[in-house]
Computed example of a mutant assay.
Amino acid sequence: MIQETIVTTQNNEGKTHIAPMGIHVAGDEFIILPFRPSVTLDNILATKTAVINYTDDVRIFAGCVTGRNDWPLLKTKKIDGHFLQGSLAHCAVKLTHVDDDPVRPKLFCQALHRVNHAPFKGFNRAQFSVLEAAILLSRVNHLLATKIHTELEYLHIGFNKTAGPKEREAWDWVTKAIEQKLREL
C-alpha cells in the first residue's frame, strides 16, 4: 500500500528538510523511494533516520511542491529529528537497508516510535483533488499540457463541492504553479 505522507529528515548539521512523499507500507516496514537527486535521500543515508508525518492539512503538500517549506516543527523523542507540529500522527523510523538504484533507490526503514496527536476525521474530495494536483505539478515536465488540463478540470468538480479555506488556498498555490511551469516549457 502507498500512503501519501510528509517525510521530515535532518542533515548532519541538524537542518530539517520537509518533503511530500508516497511511501510503501507493510506492517512496521516502510519503503521510501526518492528520485535522485534528493535531499531526503542524502539525509536518510547520512543519519539513517526519518520521520513519517500523517496530516490532513493539504496546504503542507501543496506548500512543499510550490516552495513553501517553512512549517512549524517539534522535536521527536526517540531520534534526533523533527515532526510537523500540525500532524495527526508521526512515526520515527530507522534505515535498515538500501536497494540501490541509479534513478530511484529503495530505502527500507523500520518503525521505532509511533505517536498519535489527533484523530483522523477523513478526507473530503477537495483534499484528494489538491493532493492529485500537487502530484501533477511534480510531473509537469513529463506530461502533455492537455493531459494536465483535463485532469485539473476533472479534479475541480469534486474540489468545488467540498473545499474549505485551507483547500482553496492550497489549490490556488498548486494551479498557479502549474500554469507558470507550463508557460515556461
Rank of each mutant, 00 (worst) to 15 (best):
L137M: 07
W71G: 01
A62E: 00
N43K: 00
K161L: 14
R104S: 07
D57W: 02
I52V: 15
A126G: 07
P119R: 09
F30T: 04
D57C: 01
C109A: 11
I178P: 04
E13M: 06
W171C: 08
D42R: 10
D101V: 08
T162Q: 10
S129M: 09
V51D: 01
H24T: 14
I52Y: 04
K176R: 15
L74C: 13
K147F: 07
R183A: 15
N141P: 03
T162E: 11
V93W: 04
A19Q: 07
E167Y: 04
T47G: 00
A134Q: 05
D80N: 13
L144K: 14
T8S: 10
L73V: 03
D28N: 13
L155C: 04
I18M: 00
L88T: 03
E184I: 13
I157P: 02
H113Q: 11
Q110H: 11
Y54M: 11
F128Y: 15
L155T: 06
K161Y: 10
V130G: 02
Q127I: 06
N69T: 14
R59L: 09
H149C: 04
I18C: 00
L112R: 05
H149N: 12
P102A: 12
K78D: 12
K77R: 12
T16F: 07
Y154K: 15
R59F: 06
I79E: 01
G81D: 00
D70Q: 12
E29V: 12
L155A: 07
I60T: 02
F123K: 06
K78M: 13
K147L: 06
Y154E: 14
I18T: 04
G14V: 00
G164E: 10
K15D: 08
L112F: 03
Q10Y: 07
S129N: 06
G81H: 00
G14H: 01
